[in-house]
Simulated assay, not measured.
Amino acid sequence: MKYREDKYGNKLSVLGYGCMRFTMKAGRIDIKKANAEIMAAYEAGVNYFDTAYIYPGSEAALGTILADNGIRDKVNIATKLPHYMIRKKEDLDKYFEEQLKRLRTNYVDYYLMHMLSDVKTWERLKGLGIDEWLAKKKEKGAIRQVGFSYHGNSDAFCSLIDAYDWDFCMVQYNYLDETTQAGRTGVQYAASKGLPVFIMEPLRGGKLARNLPDKARQLISSYPIKRSPVEWSFRWLWNQPEVTCVLSGMNSLEMVQENVEYAATAEVNSFTEDDFNLIAKVKEAINEKMKVPCTGCRYCMPCPKGVDIPGTLAAYNRRYTDGKIAGFIDYFICTALRRDSTAASNCIDCGKCEQYCPQNISIRKELKIARRELEGYIYGITKRAVKLFMRY
């Protein structure tokens, strides 16, 4: 196992265990199976285990396994505060104490604000006193480090990085999301501020492992260096010095064994020019079904009405490359889970964006199509329900 350091010099395995996808049996986590998988990862050197309050049964399962095997103090637990459920300051202790009980511990190594969407959301939490609360927890050792997980564009991500003295961050990042989500721009910005960067969705929800188009698979299989699609995805990430730890939702012993083998030889700056060319060709093969040739350069931003143009077009493209559900989820996250809507329906057809687009995309026309395909009845109902729940 290879290791990289966090902000304070602690060694972290380059492969982290994502605990969201434990195998279920009769409606509950198969604890015996999960125990075997976690212990196999631990014995291979994995020392970072990531869970969250809203992952059904995950915190309790992880806490039980670590406690029963006597290894709690030998690993790092990361879990996440469901800030969207916080209504008053007292709720902070309520949820945190429940998490400690589930995890059978008296401290959390890495504590994240779960799916923190923008600075306005963080300001709402600050208004409830979260910065003072976190400071006290850190002083007492109940929380060792504070960070946030993020889904959204690079501009909002960089603004969040500057909004607080974070210890680390977590983003969705893979070779398909190099110019979307926080993207390479966000990853490098966080690293420039001295923050370790943890990676989720390295396989794009499995697409880069199981659902590659035939042309992409052929490119990989015919390449002189024989690696699986999964290994190429991981190595593309580990090649970057800004990446600290890559999470994998491992739910089989075979998956654990394969991933730890990859992690055992993970090196920074090991890619050759030919390796990069291979990934570029694979991306082209995957993106052949894309509807809009948007590169995510963001020259079209900012929109005077707040439309997340690159995020909308990326979600629209994903609808055709990954399926309707994947496209809907991406669009909902980047437009509706915000204090202020960034939806395509905000567009007033001013055309300012098109003046700066280096791809000469008819952005206004594409936004209308994206709105029609992504903002249906379900979008509206779900958006209202989430706003009510989160009190945005």
Rank of each mutant, 00 (worst) to 15 (best):
R364Y: 10
G351E: 14
P213N: 04
V268L: 11
L160Y: 09
L208E: 00
D274W: 07
E139S: 01
A264S: 14
D30E: 05
R184G: 11
A336L: 01
R372N: 15
G141H: 03
T51G: 00
F22H: 06
L247D: 10
K283L: 06
A156G: 11
L116S: 02
I54Q: 12
R235H: 00
K101S: 05
F389I: 14
V108A: 01
E258Y: 08
Y110I: 02
H114Y: 11
T272Q: 07
E123I: 15
D167H: 07
L253D: 04
G9W: 12
S154V: 15
Q145W: 08
E5T: 13
Y262S: 03
T335G: 04
R104K: 06
R227M: 06
I199T: 00
Y17F: 13
H151L: 03
F22W: 04
V256I: 13
E254C: 12
K137Q: 10
I329M: 08
T244E: 00
A216S: 06
K352E: 15
G147N: 03
C303E: 14
Y173L: 09
V260L: 03
I363P: 06
N153C: 07
P82R: 10
F332W: 05
K2E: 11
P224E: 06
A216D: 02
I65K: 08
I378T: 14
E97H: 06
L208V: 11
F276S: 14
C357F: 00
K11A: 10
V282P: 06
G141M: 03
K305M: 14
D274M: 09
V75K: 10
F328H: 02
A285Y: 01
L116I: 09
K140F: 02
R364M: 07
W238V: 01
A34Y: 07
N153F: 02
L176E: 09
A26W: 14
E366I: 06
Y320A: 00
E132P: 02
A191M: 03
R235E: 05
I54E: 10
A34K: 00
R227E: 07
G129A: 03
I130L: 06
K383N: 13
K207A: 05
E261A: 14
V230I: 13
K387L: 13
G296P: 02
G205T: 13
E123W: 05
D155I: 07
M200N: 01
Y331W: 15
G194D: 00
Q240I: 12
V268W: 15
F271R: 06
K305Y: 13
D167Q: 03
R102T: 11
T64I: 14
A156K: 06
Y53P: 11
H114E: 02
I71S: 08
R235L: 00
I329P: 03
T382F: 15
V268I: 15
Y55F: 04
N317G: 09
L112K: 12
K387Y: 15
C19F: 05
Y8C: 12
